[in-house]
Design a protein around this nucleic acid. Sequence first.
DNA 1: GTAGTCACTTGCATTTTGCAAGTCTATTGC
DNA 2: GCAATAGACTTGCAAAATGCAAGTGACTAC
Lengths: 137, 137
Amino acid sequence: MSTAKTFTRSACAIANSLDVVGDKWSLLVVRDLLHGKRTYGELVNSPERIPTNILAERLKRLEGAGIIVSTPYQQHPKRYAYTLTPKGSALGDVLLAFVRWGKQHIPGTVTLNQGSASGASAASTANSRRRRAKRAG
Amino acid sequence: MSTAKTFTRSACAIANSLDVVGDKWSLLVVRDLLHGKRTYGELVNSPERIPTNILAERLKRLEGAGIIVSTPYQQHPKRYAYTLTPKGSALGDVLLAFVRWGKQHIPGTVTLNQGSASGASAASTANSRRRRAKRAG
DNA sequence: GTAGTCACTTGCATTTTGCAAGTCTATTGC
DNA sequence: GCAATAGACTTGCAAAATGCAAGTGACTAC
């Protein structure tokens, strides 16, 4: 009983990989992290506009799976920087395969390689505008 | 206005690939098809035991996305064989990346390479046993 | 002509998404 | 010090996806 693995579906490497990152958002978070993004705000402001509750849940799941680690970069208030573990970085090959396939077979798609945090500040303005609307009521 | 693409989330090749095959089952169907499986029954009897309603829906979606084609191999009753298009076969690289990552980072996982339809008949027996239970009522 | 098989479809409960808004902690302007 | 702003989440809830179980239609075997 060295490895008492009880797989959810099967022992297939593909099936188990999909159980970890086989949803519409996880790999996009990994993509952003590979591109140098590190904070919650930077991740939220990606072009795909991931819902905040989904992002929070995914960050927890990915951390639980050993794909990312969160390290506090400030106390008061506590803020975390999310970075990839070696296991997470290794997903780069999967991402690359998706990029190649997508560019070749889905017309109009491109490689998004926007460098890290740039452009995040511009988007954050629109984000907070909505909140005021209800305070005013 | 040559390509009036309206992407759901962004023009990113990864995001759009995930919109097509970014769920827990689609790539497993592609895996089986790459392994030589061709009929509904063969796909149903894969070790992951995909629910039949999900399989039917995925086959339609994958066909709509140009990843597979269904060709009738018999009339009366109509039966279809599902095969990969070049676009679908090209997903082999993505699958390969997942296999490599899974085997390296998820302990206990293996490469499932069971040849085509073998083993399907043994599983189909257990499948039909349940149906009798309600007919008897 | 009845049981069995294959390829689906249908019903429904559970789970997951995703939009919108709320909270919590701290900083800035006055 | 008090309102406004901001970043990082959390919460509520409607809609969609998932998954179990059973049903259907067209045949085959006996």
